[in-house]
Nucleic acid binder design. Structure first.
Length: 413
RNA sequence: GUGGGUGUAGCUCAGUUUGGUUAGAGCGCCAGGUUGUGGCCCUGGAGGCCGUGGGUUCAAGUCCCAUUACCCACCCCA
């Protein structure tokens, strides 16, 4: 180990893994184009205020997970823990949308949260974010979910489940929340210590507690679905009907809630059986209150985030990494051949061919062995004793034929 | 923030229970042999502050304490 190592929770993406990242990113851009979504690249740093107001003061993210500090002028700034708030800020600041004139956007990049690392959880992690601002109807919800499902399907992810719920709106959620709180308070002694604490901060979270006793309590209590206002009920019904129309499988999960305050109505998550405890590959929903919360107009929004590390964790289980097969492998067997060898490799590369090369000292045997391991189609060896300085041996690895070639004769290749 | 597990060669790991010559294997790397100049096979070689610091002991990779990093889980979330 070197003296200086990477910061805890920050990981290198090594060359073999980078292949999968490219696949995922290319697919994201491909689908964005097909669905008519444009890229919006927002800064990694924002004013702390943006996240405090957008995500919610009482959330774990804002309370204890943000990388927040003062810059040299004393301004409080934060490394973005998620993308939605920044995207909303950019949309408002640049007037990209208004209700009835929506904008469809996506963003790809790193997020930062100070959490204890474990499988599928790092301090720097990456998300694909898709957001639509300015459309309050249920059909855009279905479109966004369809985009997400297409993304996962075309990447051939196995064992993914879409779960859906409605969190209600400003009209019906407060009443439900109160109803739930009073119910849970009456059963307070049956709840786990964590849930007793949640009761005060965010009672909805008790619904998706994993402990058996809490689940039993929640089962007997009021559920959001039964307490939606007529508008929210109609919205949800329209979303589910649309999904069925598109043949997108989903499951209603009445216990599904979201960790961030800004969500309203439609909420969804995608889980995978191929991950560890952190089994959410993607999550999202509608956030009609966010823009107003940020001091802007009443601009509705809906979107989701895909955790790319988690996505790639699954892709690793189902996809074989294929190495790049070079057209040529070039190596030299004597120091005098280095110059001509480099020049030859360069010439081939300029012609658009893939060339793997070795400029280090080594014997013929090990060079051929390496060429073989790389899967090179042809091998060019320079500097063998019996050849003149400007000649090279070209060997076709499949047919085992070989011939000599002049380094100066361009027609040879 | 709280638990549990693991740190030995470039990589994957034995060895720690029960302290005892010079710390091992496979893969990889280097050189050589065989082969039709390569894949198989054979021989040899390089490469280790055994995570770090302290303690016990005649003697510590092995026992004790501390510390640090990574992993997994809680929590939270994507």
């Amino acid at each position: 180990m070197p003296e200086i190592t990477a910061v805890r929770g920050f990981k290198d993406i090594l060359p073999d893994q980078a292949q999968l990242w490219c696949l995922a990113e290319d697919k994201a851009r491909d689908l964005a184009r097909r669905f008519g979504y444009s890229e919006l690249r927002v800064p990694l740093l924002e004013r702390t205020e943006l996240f405090a107001r957008g995500i919610g003061e009482a959330t774990d993210i804002v309370e204890k997970e943000m990388y927040t500090f003062e810059d040299r002028s004393g301004d409080k700034i934060t490394l973005r823990p998620e993308a939605t708030a920044g995207m909303a800020r950019a949309v408002l600041e640049n007037n990209l949308a208004q209700t009835g004139s929506p904008v469809r956007l996506f963003c790809l990049g790193p997020m930062f949260r100070y959490e204890r690392p474990q499988k599928g959880r790092q301090r720097q992690f990456h998300q694909l974010d898709v957001e639509v601002f300015g459309d309050e109807g249920p059909f855009i919800d279905a479109e966004v979910i369809a985009l997400l499902c297409t993304f996962l399907t075309e990447l051939e992810l196995p064992e993914v489940r879409v779960e859906l719920n409605s969190l209600g709106c400003g009209q019906c959620r407060p009443a439900f929340r109160e109803k739930l709180t009073s119910f849970l308070t009456s059963r307070r002694s049956d709840l786990c210590p964590d849930c007793q604490r949640r009761l005060l901060l965010n009672p909805l979270r008790v619904l998706d507690c994993k402990t058996e006793t809490c689940q039993a309590v929640a089962l007997n209590g009021p559920d959001m679905a039964g307490n939606l206002c007529p508008d929210c009920r109609a919205h949800l019904a329209s979303v589910t009907a649309s999904l069925e129309n598109l043949n997108i499988p989903y499951r209603i999960n009445k216990r599904l809630v979201r960790g961030l305050d800004y969500y309203t109505r439609t909420a969804f998550e995608v889980h995978s059986g191929r991950l560890g405890a952190q089994n959410a590959v993607a999550g999202g929903g509608r956030y009609d209150g966010l823009c107003r919360q940020l001091g802007g107009p009443d601009l509705p929004g809906i979107g989701f985030a895909v955790g790319l590390e988690r996505l790639i964790l699954i892709m690793n289980q189902t996809r074989a990494l294929k190495p790049h097969i070079p057209d040529y492998y070039v190596a030299v067997l004597s120091p005098e051949a280095l110059g001509p060898g480099l020049a030859l490799a360069h010439k081939l590369r300029l012609k658009g061919l893939t060339v793997s090369a070795d400029w280090t000292a080594g014997g013929l045997k090990s060079r051929l062995k390496r060429a073989d391991r790389l899967g090179a189609k042809k091998v060019i060896m320079l500097g063998t004793d019996e050849l003149a300085q400007n000649m090279a041996t070209v060997r076709n690895m499949e047919t085992k034929e070989q011939h000599t070639m002049s380094l100066t004769d361009h027609s040879a290749y």
